[in-house]
Each structure stands twice: as C-alpha cells, then as structure tokens.
Design a protein around this nucleic acid. Structure first.
Length: 534
DNA sequence: TTGAATGAAAG
DNA sequence: CTTTCATTCAA
C-alpha cells in the first residue's frame, strides 16, 4: 500500500504549467472542509489561488446577495459572454434611467426575458460589438487568471434523451404512434391499430416527439463558408413504415397522402423499367448542394464535419466552361477525377466495381443516438448504399411439400445492371410476390435488424435512383426506359416512382410507406436525397 | 435569459 | 479517435 499522496489536479488554479509545480497555494485546510467523498464531485480542491482578483467590468451591479460561489473569496467567476455583456447594458438602461421603484420591482427574470428578446431581435452587426467585447473580456480573463479552468459541478446526473438501446422496431412503432396520434387528433377518429404492439411499446422514454424527428441524427450539412446552399425543394420527404392496417386511419393530409399511397398502389411496376443510377451532373443547384458529398463519397466512408467544412474553396460554375476548383481530397477520389467537371457524372453504364454513383457510395452515418429516429427507409437504403453489387448467393426455396424445390440463381449482377433486368422473382409458399420486390428470396423484413446486402435482390440498387434523375440514353439495342424522367426542378410529387418498387415490396409484407415532412436542408439525412421528390 | 466550457456518452 | 449533448455558470 502506498502512502496516500495528496491528490493534485493540475488544472486547478495555482498550477504553474511551465514549472509543473503549484505556485500559489494555501497550504492549509486540506481536508477539514471536504465534503463526503463522491465520485461525481469535482474535487473541491484544497489548493486555492491567492491573487486572482476577478475584475468585474463596469456594468457589474455587484449583486452581493448572489450565492457568490459558496463564500469562496478566491472564486474566479467566468467571463461574461456577449449576451451577458449586452444584458448588463440593457439592465442598466432599463433600470438605471427609471425610478428606483422600477428598479426594485423589475425582477431579474423579467429582465432576462426582455433582454433575451431584445438580443434575439438584434442583427449580427448589432451584436458584433458585444461579441468583440466578450472576446476581449475572455482574453483578459485568461491573462489575469492563468491556470484558470472552468469546472462546473455536476448536480444532476446528465440525462441523455433516451437511455439504453432502442430497437428499430421501437423507433418505428413510436413513429407510427406519433403519426397515429396526430391523425386521430385531427380527425377525431378512434380507429385503433391492432398492429401497434402495445406490448412492446417503446419503453424508456415514450414515443418520439416532433423534436426528435427534427433531430433525427443524420448528416447535418454544415453550411460551407456559412453560405446557405438553397435547395430547390421546399421539403424533403422521408418515408417511414406504418403497418397497412393502420394506414386506413385518416391521415392529417388525406389529399397528399391518399395520392401518394394510391399512386403507389395503382401504378404497376414494370419489370422492364430501367432506372439508371443517378447522374449528379444534371442540375446546378442540386449539384451544388450535393457536391461535397459527391466529392467525398468515393472514399466510401464517413467524413468528419471539419473535413467537410474545410471545402472552403469549393466553387461551381455552370457557365458552359464548367470549371470548379476544390481541394483534392483523397487518392481514392481519382476514381472520379474531381479535377474534371465530368466527375460528377456517374458512369452511365456502371461497371461492377463502380456500381454506385458517387452519392450512392456515401454511407449513412450510423452515429445514431438512441434517440435518433432513423426511418426504415433510411436504414434500408443505408444498407443498400453499403451494398457493393455482389449478388446474394443462390437460394433454394421449397414450394410447399409437393412442389419441386425451386432454385433461384440470381443473374450475373453486372449483366442485370447493364440490361436493366428486373429483380429476381421472389417465390414463397404463400404467394408470388412478383417483380419489384427489393428483397432477395426468402428474406423477411425484420425491423429489428438492419438488412444486409445479401437480403436484397441483385440489381435492387439500380432501382433506387431518385425520381428526378434524367434518364441517360441506353445503349442501342437495350430496352428503352418506360418512364420518362422529369428534371429535378420540374419534378412534381406525382412523378415520384423511385419508391414504387420499395412500397410494393413492403406491401407484400403488409407494410405501407407513409411520409413526413422535414424542412429542407437543416438536417439532412442523406438517404433522403435518394428518395426526394417534389 | 444566451453562450461557452466541460465531461461523459456514444459511435 | 471524433462528435454529440446535457449540464453548469457567468449578471
């Protein structure tokens, strides 16, 4: 057993970083006033600084009645931030000029509220001086209090919005509940949903709140150079699954919803429909907004936000000469030579090693907090985007006891891509699920599990082109596409077909896609890009 | 009341 | 390792 050395925390006041010693300490009172040992307690240190002498700038009304950091005379208060500096001035103006009665009668709370409102109404330019002042004050603070370190004391244990694992099923169900609740409230309908799985309701924190929806963890697009990259869309749509039996309940927007669902129902999926991989060169605005992703995506991995935002000199011109400059990111990017404008154009007929258009390579960041709600479509498509085009192994299905076993060998994936062949047919005991099914034979859609790429039909990725992608001409001799693609900017909601195969596939499992709206580009789930419409 | 810093959680 | 986020604390 070693001698209990006095605990020393180098970052408390008094530590001299240069000499690695404690310069100024009151060598007394080491443990006399120590609180009971608590791990969360940030060690009220016996070490105290002699000289700090906090300078309170002009405004300070010195509310001596405030709990001055528990009667520690050597406590160094934090520097004020811009708002606080503003608030000081604000307070002075509003109480100083007024009569004393006002001063005493205006509670701090009200002042704070008013100051907050005033602050919010101010422009950046107006706030600038306060920010500068705050910076100065901060600098002065560090100069005058070397070794100072802000050490907030934990009083409450930090609460994450959700604790513990939340299964995807729970996420989906809580979304369904949210939607159901909204529908019910709006239509005053009492139709319940038998599939709601009340037994396995999302336990820890209850259903997803709208705020959670806004905060679906996903790739936030940092505004490069602080410039907003405006989207041509007013909304992006993310789809989530609701059991078919629930979808009959009135929806908050029956018109849109009905149109969406019925169009998905009515339009039959053509097995000959060739949906090309996305061509990202088609639309200036879209390309501008997407380009960072496209640039990085050949790495096929995640991109840190700093990296992304370091794309400062990214420019994009559509003046015919089509030049842009952008930093060379990685050697892997040479697959799409980013020095060339054409790099944004996906190969019209992708080879197997480059099946994906750049955007498709971008993996969905899986930094999903438990509270983050990922739409089923998002996780489906995230799996899809991880899929490298390999065909799943041949699957043998037994068709009842009398029927002969049926072996389905997926076609050569590259061939199927080239020819735009339909996905393989899924045949089960129950039914012929038909073309358009996304899943490979014998695969059940299990919301608790992220599908692996082997779960999908071999050319399913090719079916996943966004609806707004202009169809490139197919090589002569190939079946020409059935669908006429609509340019992005002119795409109308009814034109979306990218999800049809998806919804048909899901429909086979009694699952109907539904939608919710998100305001554009605040928090982008990249998979939404692939299915955006309108 | 806003904003900065922190530390821990989570990937 | 990096990023997110709840919490504290400045008057």
């Amino acid at each position: 057993m070693t001698t209990p050395l006095p605990l020393v925390y180098p970052d408390v006041c008094g530590w001299n970083a240069s000499t690695n010693t404690l310069d100024q300490i009151i060598p007394s009172a080491s443990s006399s006033v120590m609180p009971p040992p608590q791990t969360s307690s940030p060690h009220p240190s016996p070490i105290t600084v002699l000289e700090p002498v906090p300078v309170r700038p002009a405004c300070s009304r010195q509310p001596s009645r405030t709990p001055r950091r528990s009667d520690d005379p050597n406590h160094v208060p934090r520097p004020r931030n811009a708002f606080f500096i503003f608030r000081c001035e604000f307070t002075r103006k509003h109480t100083g000029e007024a009569k004393d009665s006002t001063r005493s009668s205006t509670p701090e709370k009200v002042l704070s509220k008013r100051a907050g409102a005033a602050w919010a109404a101010m422009s950046d330019a107006e706030k600038g001086p306060y920010r500068d002042e705050a910076k100065k004050e901060s600098k002065r603070h560090t100069l005058e209090n070397p070794g100072y370190r802000y050490k907030p004391k934990r009083k409450k244990p930090p609460q994450r919005r959700t604790t513990g694992p939340v299964t995807r099923r729970e996420q989906v169900e809580s979304l369904v509940q949210l939607r159901e609740g909204t529908s019910a409230r709006l239509a005053e309908s009492t139709s319940g949903c038998p599939h709601s799985h009340a037994s396995s309701s999302p336990e820890p924190d209850g259903p997803v709140t709208p705020r959670d929806l806004q905060h679906r963890r996903s790739m936030s697009l940092p505004h490069i150079d602080g410039v907003d990259h405006l989207s041509p869309y007013s909304y992006t749509h993310t789809y989530f699954i609701t059991p078919a039996s629930c979808s009959s309940s009135p929806s908050p927007d029956p018109q849109r919803n009905g149109r969406r669902l019925s169009s998905a129902r009515q339009r039959s999926f053509s097995p000959n429909m060739y949906i090309p991989p996305p061509d990202l060169s088609f639309d200036l605005e879209f390309a501008e907004a997407t380009a960072p992703f496209a640039l990085f995506s050949p790495r096929g991995s995640t991109v840190s936000l700093p990296e992304l935002s370091s794309l400062q000199d990214f420019t994009f011109y559509d003046d015919g000469s089509s030049t842009y400059s952008t930093p060379q990111i990685s050697p892997a990017a040479s697959m799409y030579d980013i020095s060339q404008p054409e790099c944004f154009a996906a190969p019209l007929v992708p080879q197997q090693h480059e099946l994906s258009a750049p955007a498709f390579n971008r993996r969905h960041r899986s930094n999903t907090a438990p509270s983050a709600t990922m739409s089923p479509l998002a996780f489906l498509s995230s799996s899809l985007s991880n899929w490298n085009g390999e065909a799943p192994p041949p699957v043998t299905l037994t068709r009842g006891s009398t029927a002969p076993a049926l072996t389905i060998s997926p076609p050569d994936p590259s061939a199927s891509l080239l020819l735009g062949q339909p996905p393989i047919q899924v045949i089960t005991d129950e039914a012929d699920y038909g073309y358009g099914t996304l899943l490979a034979p014998g695969i059940d859609l299990d919301p608790d599990r992220t599908p692996r790429r082997a779960d999908f039909a071999p050319n399913v990725q090719a079916l996943y082109a966004p609806p707004y992608v202009p169809t490139p001409p197919l090589p002569p001799g190939y079946p020409q596409p059935v669908c006429t693609d609509v340019p992005l900017a002119h795409a109308s909601p009814g034109e979306a077909y990218a999800l049809e195969s998806y919804s048909e596939g899901l429909g086979a499992f009694d699952i109907t896609p539904a939608i919710y709206d998100m305001s554009p580009f605040e928090d982008i789930d990249f998979s939404d890009f692939l299915h955006v419409s309108q």
